[in-house]
Each structure stands twice: as C-alpha cells, then as structure tokens.
Design a protein around this nucleic acid. Sequence first.
RNA 1: GCCGCUGUAGCUCAGUGGUAGAGCGCGUCAUUGGUAAUGACGAGGCCGGGAGUUCAAUUCUCCCCAGCGGCACCA
Length: 664
Amino acid sequence: MNDQAAANAPVNLTLPDGSVRTLTGVVTGAALAADIGPGLAKAALAVRVNGALWDLSRPISEDSEISIVTNRDEAEALDLMRHDCAHVMAEAVQELFPGTQATIGPNIDDGFFYDFARDKPFTEDDLTTIEAKMHEIIARGDAIEREEWDRDEAIAHFRDIGELYKAEIIEDIPAGETVTIYRQGTWKDLCRGPHLPTTKKVGVAFKLMKVAGAYWRGDSNNAMLTRIYGTCWRDKKELKAYLFRLEEAAKRDHRKLGREMDLFHLQEEAQGSVFWHPQGYLIWLQLEAYIRGRLKDAGYAEIKTPQILDSKFWEQSGHWSKFRENMFVVPDEIPSTDDDAPVISAGAKLMALKPMNCPAHVQVFKQGTKSYRDLPIRFAEFGCCHRNEPHGALHGLMRVRQMTQDDAHIFCREDQVTSESVDFCNLLFSVYRDLGFGDVKVLLATRPDVRAGADDVWDKAEKGLEDALIAGGVRYEMAPGEGAFYGPKLEFHLQDAIGRTWQCGTLQLDFVLPERLDAAYIGEDGAKHRPVMLHRAILGTLERFIGIMIEHYAGRLPLWLAPTQAVVTTITSDADAYATKVHAALVAAGLRARLDVRNEKINYKVREHSHAKVPAILVVGQKEEEEGLVSVRRLGSKNQTVLPLETALEALVLEGKMPEGDVG
RNA sequence: GCCGCUGUAGCUCAGUGGUAGAGCGCGUCAUUGGUAAUGACGAGGCCGGGAGUUCAAUUCUCCCCAGCGGCACCA
C-alpha cells in the first residue's frame, strides 16, 4: 500500500556521475533506464539502490543514489545470471520431472548448483534433456516478478504444493516477517533475489556439469538429495574459455602426472597407501631433507617414536574415545593357523597404529624432570601415521590412509605462546615461499560447541593465536566453531589445479593433552606447572604436499626438487664416449643426471625426456665433443644454448642448490 | 559412510549374446640421424570379482570390490 501512495510523489535519483533525475509515477530501475535511453533500457539487468542490488521492477519510493547494472558489471552480471540460471534449471527439472522438490540453489565459484529431492536420483544422461528444456524456458522469456508474501501464507502454500523443504526453510524465518517469492511464468520460488527482468537475460552460455549426492543442510544424518552443478557465463566465448581452463587443469592432475612421470602408484591391496617409485621418492627425500634443515635451524630436535602402541595408551590420551573409528587396531597375538579356530582369540591384547604423534611426544617430554629454563622444547618427527579414512574420502596423494607428517610439538610456558606462534608463522611462510607458494589462505578456527577446557582458557588461547597473526602481519579469516576439541587452531590452505583447497599447515594450541598425560615442568617458584603444547605442521603431510606441488608446477619442479635434473644424450653413437664423460662430470658435481645413449633419433629422445619433465637436456654430438661443449635445452624452451661443459655444470649446480630460507 | 558414473593389453580408448581390436609403450631386426614421434616384424588379455538368465555371457540381470565426480568427514 505504501508503495502505491509513494508512487505519486516525485523521486529524485542521483546517478553515479552526480546528476539527478526526478521521476514520477511508479518509479523503478526499469523506468529510470528507459528515461535515460532505449539502449540502456535494453541492456539493464538490475539496479544498485543506495549500495544494495535491486530488481529493475521493484518500486523505488525514496530519493536514492542509484546506478544501473548491465553486462559490463562483470561480478554483478555473473551473479544475477548464474542465480537465474539455477532458477531456470529448477523450473526445467520440475516441468520434466513432476513431483521433484526444489530445495536450495546458491551460486558458487564459476557457477551454481541446485539440490533436488526425488526418489530416483538424476543421472548424467538427464542433463542433456534438462539443458534442452532450459533453452526453451529462456527462449520463452517470461518476466521474473518479485512478490512479497506473508511468512505463514508462504509456508502453507509450499506445503500445499508438496514443497516440504521450502516450507521448512521458511519456518526458520521469524513469524510475522514477509518473505519474497519470485515468479517466472507459472513457476515460483522462495528467494531473496534480486533477479534479472526476464529469463531471456540468462542467455545461452551455460552448461550443466555434473550430478552428485548432497545431504540436506549438509548433515549426513539427513536425507541425501540430488545436486546438479552448472556453470553460466555472459557469452559463449567466456564459457568456452572456462571449459578450456578445466581441461588444462585436468592435465596437471597429480594422479595423471604421477603415472606419466613414473613417480608413484596406488593399488587396491593397499588402499590409500602410496607405492613410491624411485623418481617419486627422490622428490620426497629432497623435500624431507629441506624441511629437516629448516627445522634444525629453527631450534627443533628431531625424534622418532613407536608406530604401534597399546590401546590402553590411547585410552589415556583420549584418542580411544574420540578417534577410535579412524584408527587401525592390531591384536597383539599370534594368529591361529587352524582352519576352524578363530584367527585371533577374543581376549587378545589390542594395539593400535598411531594416528597422531602427539601423545608419544609427550612421553619423550616426560622423561626426566623439566625446568622452566628448558622451555620451549621443540620436538620434531617425520611421523608416519595411519588413519582409517572413509572410502569415499580417499583421493590420490591428497587424502591417504598412511601419511607422513612434518610434525612437531612445542612445549612452552603460557607467556611463550605468542612468540612461539609468531616464529612458527614466519617459518611457515618462509618455507612456502621457498617452495613457490605465495598465495596461502589462513583461517583462525575457534572454539567448537563440544570442547574441553574452561572458557577463560579458550579466550586466552584464541587471543594468543590472533595476536600472533596480527604481530606477523598475516591476513586471515575466521572459521568459527572449527577448532579442535582441545584448542583453537590456525589452518593454512593451498589450492590444487582445479581450485580445490587443501589444508596443509596447521598450528594448534592445546591445554588439554598435557593435563591428560600429566606433563609438567618445575617453574621459577619451585612448583609444578603444566606446559602449553603447540601442535604444528608446515607441509601437513609429505604425500599431500608433493601432490600439490606436482599440480602447482604441472610436473615441472624446480631444479633442486626434480628427481632427474639432467639427461645427457647423443646425436649419434660416435659421441657415446664423450657423453659418458659429461654424465660422469654431472654426477661428480652432485647432480642427479642420467645418460641416454640409445640408438634413437635426437628428436625422439628430446621428445621423450621433455614429456618426462626433465629440466635440462644436454645434447652432445661431434661438434660439442671437439670443443668440450654441451648443447643445453631447458624444459619449456625450444631453444638450445651451446656452452662449455664447465660453465653449464656450474650454472646447474648453482640453480640446483636446496634453498636455505629467506627469513630476514 | 552416502548419491551417481565407470571398470576391456603397461597407458589411452574402440567393440560384440557365438571366448576380442587400435594407437602409444614393450621386444627383435634394420636404420647413425643436430633438438618434441624412422621403419618392419613380434609378444602381450580369466574383458574388475562372484552368482544368475541362456545351447552359449566380455556383452543381459543381481550382489560385491575398486576407481572417478560430489556430499559428509578430514592433514
């Protein structure tokens, strides 16, 4: 009612250039665009009113700052188009498959999804049909209209038409509030909006990508819905570029490159555990040596603790109750070889493979009496842990069941927490820089609902981590409720080839485990005190990190990490003797070099070693032999440089040096 | 663990209700060539596993297992 009354009063609209237009009648974004010009009226997608995005048709009753959103406003246009595309998809689905309930359908990076409830889940084959129907709906070009409904009426309406999930969503909105419903043709959806003026504006540059199961409200106790993912762009060129980007990313997949470069393999008899091949394990050894050096320089002492420990030990540490379903349990008994007898008796003593190193590190700490003067104590371990991950979680090197962490635990006094945290963050970023990762997402994960420890301890712990981030000048985001049950943590995330992010580094503050396992030091006052324990890892696990590096570098690892750094190969067999000499010189200089004197054409050999991502190919023939030269071809370049063996050797040795950190 | 898809030679993939094919790779021989594929010949397969339907199953059905894409979980 107010809108109508206000419609008769003139409204002053201030455009971005400062000019003011005064409109009367029903003032809308569409009316303003039309007032400015027919071209803009056609191009307009939505309006920004005092900073908020509105539908073109929504009445504007007050004087406002306003700007027209068109295709040129990339972010807004894509947001609107993708969300409308999701609505169109839902309409298509419900037209084709009556009885299917629409639940939620938000935008995501590069596209959108919509979750549907249907007895029979959709398959990839259905996507073509749905896409065709979407094109029909878009061609129809129904106006998209915003309506305000009373909450209770909306609930009743959606219940009536069998949209129980929608009704459930609206029930969460406080009684008495109005909800917005968007209508296109006869199809309606609950939505905050805003939307495009007509479905036609969605255009044709969209594609349904895949179907997947997804739990209602992201909870595995709820029903499984069927989700359809789609992508949508402003024009076909953008869509094509996006699909090309996906293809390129797939080429970097570490599982594919791992096979092509002969780095590792997985097989079903050892699900989730990696068979490292010689070339792959060289990468591992280099990375491990590098981290070992950095940790030593940072004041860590390396230790090694048992792989299998008594379940009683895990009961004490709390893992038996909190983590048992992820642990591999091993009976300590000689199995029976009798066919009829049980292999293991019911009374066998239970051991478990360690899923974490922390409790064992506390045992090392507890040996002897520690003084406050000894702190901080930093124990590092390349700890091999086993976790029985759910089948569906396993993923190449990224998610495995046997993993080796670059783990360490810092035992310190409370007043040392911030400085230890700052030091750790500096070390971590320095390591990431050395390894070629400048772009890292940092999350501060705070207290979860279910937790151990008093709130004042949590206050202190969360503040300690935040202070460290601020002191280190680190940009971070909050992850409320995502902390471990024993303390808050920092998570450091890196991205893989197709944009999935993986947590690598972590820093966790723990006041609980020292208590549980009775770790103590003697303070200045002569009394016993609990140390604070910092769990931290930089790479996270060597497996995952190597996977991420393979993708990050598309297999073209920096020289110091490349398993084979150089191949010496010949034009013809006349140069075999010289090639052998060159190869020997490289090996003597400490380079990982191979010799290829096969009777194959040089084109063939260059191609093969390039595919294998060997960073440097040293070709020698008669010409090089006569003058003591080598022809160096670097990976990724089509050119060669011919230079004296000594010069080439020095350059490779220099470039192949392991980084030593760039702190300072 | 949940939903969907897939499983044929070392790799990438065709294919059929009558026990299988290509390219690359591999082996042998010939070829000695200047920076991304020299040629010929050859070997290689319980068509993921188990059951069922059928005269006959790699092919159709069901059940398992694994891989892949997501969800949930997580380093």
